[in-house]
Design a protein around this nucleic acid. Structure first.
Length: 561
RNA sequence: GCUCUAUUCGUCUAGAGGCCUAGGACGUAGCCCUCUCAAGGCUAAAACACGGGUUCGAAUCCCGUAUGGAGCACCA
């Protein structure tokens, strides 16, 4: 009778699961190679958790000589949003996570790989073959309950204080006759297909999760929906089991919110007589909300959205290394021991991933990002900063592009030694870090806040600026510094801070206090990189121009006082 | 309500019964270096949720309690 029902439901389906398994044979891969996938639904907005999961999946696959692919889970047409697929692919490519199969470039029409199609709405034939087979073997059945009837069921279960759901005696279509089903079909109704789960089911399932170890759960006894009635598409559960079987996935990485449905999934793998993959359930990235932690939310947390990192201008490597650090905390030790090796060579381990949700930590990201940018060459910084500015800050872009050789020299200040300067956090931080080098930005800052000269008399300030103006870039740094020290001493400053500390009353200040005049005149700021380097980079003409500007301001100030 | 799951410095974590007086990193504070920052070096404060067991010995194993998280949809 079940065969008859299967035929009634799917008269057009001629292929069997065995046919599909032949069409999509096991992959020829080395022993132990993982086949993994990232399977988003195209609902807009790329979440950082998605990039995190993809990173994990791709590393696991590639480190074992396996395959990482992208599958689009578009079985809920109501929630779909235009442009989502492009956004997903764009992010994967940007973060060095380009899939090996599926949609691997921005044009969603182009698909790579032998297990196509990689979009679920185009795989209905496959799902229906498996569904028909299950119905024929009595392991699944059609159900014609209306939404209202299901509501009623839930209410009744609430009243009786029993487990909610479609199971056992509550599953009224479980053992419907061929005639009952045929009557509904003839009336034009479309059923859902549900699994026939054993009920009661006292069995336990034990699985070994790659991240969480042994997990022991009660076996499934709910007759979950496999195929939806309105559009013939599968639910997540059925799509997962069929696709990951047919596409030969052997390591499923996904968020740990799926853990409770693993018993259902294992039941389905058993029903179709196929081995279940290894599971790796990833804890979501969280943040504090009041006193409790919660998953990073699309609506409340801007840092959940990948767009946030583009806007602020974090280099791709910074985000990647931050995520790697969350996934494997030994990454930081590896990075310390291998300061210049690309992070792709880090031996990632899925087993080392943490079980509890880590809290997102912007301060740590900033720290990692500073290190990442410090490792870049001046050329890389230039290219990336300008590319960012082109998109997010046109005014800055214009300034940086004005004299590209000069900009390049600016980014090279204190970058060449053994300990490169770490003061740029991200691209939107560039203006704060080195803006003073550029005349338009410098002049705007001066106009706004004036010079932060130390409280010394105007005549002396002017003399120091004159001395600065005489800067000769040919002179080595040591000589210039020595000359400045001599000058300081001649004008009543201690040669260095130590001398000053011994007898502060005998000096008007120490060398550093005098140099602050130079710093203020040259940059309009009280904290900057090395002054000699700055002057050398700026060149004589710019130094002199700035000296003149500062002199005018200093004299004005002296006049006012 | 039921099921699963988790809990080590503020944060990310190391930890597989004696290497634990609990280690590292970020952050914080102090000192050193120093033309100011940044960086770097050194130092400090800072944690095994609680209660019972098991054991010669527990952060680690077991049982409870508390608290957090997730799930119980024709959403993924």
């Amino acid at each position: 009778m079940t065969h008859a029902i299967a035929e009634l439901l799917y008269p057009h389906v001629t292929r069997t699961p065995a046919d599909w398994l032949e069409i999509y044979p096991p992959r020829a891969l080395p022993q132990g190679a993982y086949v993994t996938r990232y399977a988003p639904s195209p609902t807009g907005f790329v979440h950082i958790g998605s990039i995190y999961a993809s990173l994990v999946a791709r590393r696991a696959a590639h480190q074992t000589g396996g395959v990482f692919f992208l599958r689009i889970e578009d079985t809920d047409k109501k929630r779909e949003q235009d442009g989502s697929i492009e956004a997903i692919v764009h992010n994967l490519i940007n973060f060095g996570l380009t899939p090996d199969e599926g949609i691997v470039q921005i044009d969603p029409e182009i698909e790579l790989g032998a297990y196509k199609p990689y979009t679920q709405s185009e795989r209905i034939d496959i799902y229906e073959s498996f569904a028909k087979d299950l119905v024929a073997r009595g392991l699944a059945y059609p159900a014609f309950d209306s939404e209202a009837e299901l509501d009623e069921l839930r209410k009744q279960q609430e009243v009786e204080k029993v487990q909610p759901g479609y199971y056992g005696k509550w599953a009224r279509w479980r053992d419907a006759s061929y005639e009952d089903v045929k009557a509904r079909i003839d009336a034009g109704e479309r059923p859902v297909i549900r699994v026939r789960a054993p009920y009661p089911n006292p069995a336990r399932v034990v699985l070994h999760d790659a991240i969480r170890g042994e997990i022991d759960m009660p076996a499934n006894e709910i007759d979950a929906v496999l195929i939806k009635s309105d559009n013939r598409l599968p639910t997540y559960h059925f799509a997962h089991v069929v696709d990951d079987t047919v596409m030969r996935v052997n390591l499923v990485t996904r968020g740990d919110e799926w853990l409770p449905s693993v018993p259902l999934h294992l039941q389905l793998f058993a029903y179709i007589n196929q081995p279940a993959p290894t599971f790796a359930h990833i804890a979501p990235i969280a943040k504090m909300d009041g006193t409790s932690r919660r998953k990073l939310s699309k609506r409340k947390d801007p840092e959940a959205n990948m767009a946030y990192y583009y806007e602020i201008g974090y280099p791709e490597q910074a985000v990647t290394e931050y995520l790697l650090n969350l996934a494997n905390s030994n990454f930081q030790d590896w990075r310390r021991d291998n300061p210049t090796t690309p992070n792709s060579e880090f031996a990632f381990s899925i087993e080392k991933m943490g079980i509890a949700s880590p809290l997102f930590d912007l301060i740590k990201l900033n720290d990692i990002s500073k290190d990442v940018i410090a490792r870049f060459t001046a050329e890389q910084v230039y290219d990336l900063a300008v590319a960012w500015a082109d998109e997010h800050d046109q005014r800055l872009a214009a300034v940086l592009r004005l004299e590209s050789a000069y900009t390049l020299a600016v980014f090279n200040v204190e970058r060449t030694g053994t300990a490169p300067r770490k003061d740029i956090i991200n691209w939107s931080d560039v203006e704060r870090a080195v803006g003073f080098f550029f005349d338009p930005l410098f002049e705007a800052a001066i106009a706004k806040d004036s010079y932060p000269f130390p409280a010394l008399d105007g005549e002396l300030t002017a003399q120091v600026i004159e001395k600065m103006k005489a800067f000769d870039p040919v002179m080595p740094k040591e000589n210039w510094l020595a000359g400045m020290r001599d000058f300081a001493e001649a004008h009543g400053f201690a040669r260095d801070a130590k001398t000053f500390k011994k007898a502060p009353e005998s000096y008007r200040g120490h060398f550093g206090d005098m140099m602050m005049i130079v710093r203020a005149a040259l940059t309009g700021r009280t904290n900057t990189p090395d002054l000699y380097e700055i002057m050398k980079t700026m060149g004589t003409a710019r130094v002199q121009r700035r000296a003149d500007l500062a002199l005018t301001a200093a004299k004005q100030r002296a006049g006012n006082a």
